[in-house]
Design a binder for these strands. Structure first.
Lengths: 333, 333
DNA sequence: GTGAAAGCGCTAACAT
DNA sequence: ATGTTAGCGCTTTCAC
C-alpha cells in the first residue's frame, strides 16, 4: 500500500497524490476529491520513515527528567492539546535524569528525523543544547537562559520561591529550611529551575533578615524523605520546610510522620508545582502553581512557529507562579 | 554525514560499513576495526528513517492509558531496563484512554516503522489488536486473553481482588464496597484488568456469603473522589471500600476527609497497584502489589523474542499479586 | 570476505 | 494544473 497504488487507483500521478497528502499548492479540487477517495478506499497511510528521508516526519519528541513527577503530565497535556489539531504526533522519551541518558535520547530523536524537540528541564550544557537546536527546532522548558538558537519557556522560579518564604515568614516562621535538588555544575547553577528556586529562597530569606538553611538531595520522593530525615537529625529543628517540588514534599511527609511529628502542628511544610496530589484531602499541601498546562501550550506554539520559520528570532516566555495555601502551613507554636 | 562518507573514510565499500553497523555476518576483524574508527572519527550516526525504509528502525513503541497513574512508570522501568543493553530505543505515546485515540497512536507508531509495540491495558477490540499484531510484533499487557497473534503479560487480577476482600472480611467487615472503572463493552468485560478485578471482587464476596456493592467510575483520582461521594451519599454506608487502583484510593481519601470521616476509624480503604504514593507516611494505604517492574521485564523479553522469531507460538505470562497491608485497613468498630 | 548496484516510499525539481 | 523522474540514506541480493 504505497502512494503509487493510491495514484494508480485515483488515475493520477504520484506527484498529485503527494500534493493532496500534504495539502500542497497545485492540485485542483477535482483531483483532491479523487485522491481523497482513493486514500479512503485503500486505507492508505503514508509511511513516515519514507517521508523522513525526504523531509518531515511529522513527529515531535518530548524529553522529560522524571515520569514519576506528577507535574510533568500537566505540561504534556498542554503540549498535546495544542498539537492535536495539527499533523504532528508527539512521542515521549523515557525519563532520563543525567547528561549521558539525555544525550542518548536526543541523539535517538534526531536519528529518527523528528521535526522538533521539546526538552523539559534538560541538564546538558548550553553548548550541547545549542548544537542540538542547530540540528532540529528545539524549545527548552524550565532553563533560565537566553539563546540565539532555541526558544525557552520558564516559570519565574525566583518569585515562586519568594512566595513560599514570604507566606511562611508572614505566618511567623523564623527558621525555614529548604530541600533542593543538588546542583554542582556552575553553569547550571544559574539556569536550572531547581537552582533558581534555591537562589530565590536564599534571596527572599535574606530580604527578611533570616538565615538560609539548605539541604541538598534530589527532586524525588526518596530525596524528600532522606532530606527531611537529615533535617530532623540535627540539634535545632526548623519550624517550617520548603520542599522544592511537591514530589519532594511527599517524601518529607513520610519522614515527618515516621518521626511522630504533626503537620502543621509541629512543623509546616510547603511544596512546589501544585500537583493533583497536593490537593488530596489528607495531604492538602501548600504549594506554588506554575500552570503546567500553559507552559505546555506555550512550548508547543513556539515550536510550531520555529518549524515554520527557522530563522525567526528566538523568544523567551516567562510565566508567573501563584501561591496556593493549604493546610500544611500554619503559624509555629 | 552518511554511510557513504564512513565507507570512503575507512576505504571500504558501503556494504562493508553497513555490515559492521549491524554486526552482520561477513566482515573481517580488520575491516570492523577500520570502519569502527571511521565512525568514531566522523561522529557518524545512522539515520533511522533511512534504515526504516529498508527494514528495522530499532524503535519500540509503548502505549499506556494514563501517564498520571503512578503504577505505569513501574512497568516502564522494567521495559527500559531490559531494553537498555540492546540496540532498541523506547518511545512512549502520550496517554490515551479511548479507542479512537488508541487507534491514532498505534497507527502513528506503525507509520513510523516501529519494530515492536507494547500496549498497556489497551481498550481496542481484539480484532483490531490482532490486525495490529499481524502488522508489527506486539505484546499486550493486562488483558486476559489468549491470542495466536500477540503475546500477553497479565497479573492475576482475580486473585488480587480476592486478596483484598479476604483481608477485609477477615478483619470483620461485612459491607465492603468496590469502586471500579466503568466497563460496558461485553467483550472487554472478560478481558480488561479492571473488569476482571471487579469480577474477582464479586466472586470473593460471594464465596464469603457477602452481598457485592459496586460503584462504577474511572481509574483516576477524580473518579475515586466522585465514586466515594456517591457511596457516602447513600443511606447505609459500607465499613470498607476497595478501590480498584491506588490512584482511585487517592481520590477516595479526599472525599472521606471532606466528609469528616477517619480512615480506618470510620471506614477502611484498600487500593490496588502498591504505588509509591501508597507507601507515603500520612497515607499508608493497604494495597495489592502486582510487581510492575516484572511485568515490564517480561513484556520486553517477549517482544524481543517475537521480533527475532515472528512465527514462534504466542506466550501468555501470568504473574501473581501479593497483599501489602498498611494502616488504612482495620476492624470495623 | 568484499563490493556494485538495485530499490524501499516518498518528495521536489523540472518538464509539459 | 499535472506528470516524469532523480534521489534521500540505508540494506540487501548477487556477483566476484
Amino acid at each position: 500500500m504505497t502512494i503509487v497504488d493510491v495514484a494508480r487507483h485515483a488515475g493520477v500521478s504520484t506527484t498529485a497524490a503527494s500534493k493532496v497528502l500534504r495539502n500542497a499548492y497545485g492540485a485542483s479540487p477535482a483531483m483532491r476529491e479523487k485522491v481523497q477517495r482513493a486514500i479512503e478506499e485503500l486505507g492508505y497511510r503514508p509511511y513516515a520513515a519514507a517521508r523522513g528521508l525526504r523531509g518531515q516526519t511529522y513527529t515531535i519528541g518530548v524529553m522529560l527528567p522524571d515520569i514519576r513527577n506528577p507535574f510533568f503530565p500537566e505540561i504534556l497535556d498542554g503540549l498535546t492539546d495544542t498539537l492535536r489539531d495539527t499533523d504532528y504526533h508527539v512521542l515521549l522519551g523515557p525519563s532520563c535524569d543525567n547528561e549521558k541518558d539525555e544525550g542518548k535520547l536526543t541523539d535517538a530523536m534526531v536519528d529518527r528525523g523528528m521535526d522538533g524537540l521539546v526538552l523539559i528541564a534538560p541538564v546538558m550544557s548550553q553548548v550541547r543544547l545549542e548544537r542540538l537546536a542547530n540540528t532540529v527546532p528545539t524549545v527548552v522548558v524550565g532553563r533560565h537562559t537566553r539563546s540565539a538558537c532555541y526558544d525557552t519557556v520558564t516559570d519565574d522560579d525566583t518569585t515562586g520561591a519568594a512566595l513560599v518564604v514570604d507566606h511562611l515568614a508572614d505566618l511567623g516562621h523564623r527558621h525555614i529550611a529548604h530541600i533542593e535538588h543538588h546542583e554542582t555544575d556552575p553553569a547550571r547553577l544559574a539556569e536550572m529551575p531547581n537552582a533558581v528556586r534555591a537562589d530565590g529562597y536564599r534571596k527572599a530569606m535574606q530580604a527578611r533578615g533570616l538565615p538560609p538553611d539548605i539541604v541538598s538531595t534530589t527532586y524525588t520522593q526518596e530525596g524528600g524523605y532522606l532530606g527531611t530525615r537529615q533535617i530532623l537529625a540535627r540539634p535545632n529543628r526548623p519550624t517550617a520546610i520548603f520542599a522544592g517540588a511537591d514530589i519532594v514534599a511527599m517524601g518529607a511527609l513520610t519522614a515527618l510522620s515516621e518521626a511522630g511529628l504533626s503537620v502543621p502542628g509541629d512543623i509546616s511544610l510547603a511544596g512546589y508545582d501544585n500537583t493533583s496530589f497536593a490537593a488530596l484531602g489528607p495531604i492538602s499541601l501548600t504549594s506554588v502553581d506554575q500552570a503546567g498546562h500553559h507552559i505546555g501550550t506555550a512550548a508547543a506554539r513556539l515550536l510550531l512557529e520555529r518549524i515554520a520559520d527557522r530563522s525567526r528570532p528566538t523568544a523567551q516566555i516567562k510565566l508567573s507562579p501563584t501561591l496556593v495555601p493549604r493546610r500544611t502551613t500554619a503559624s509555629p507554636r
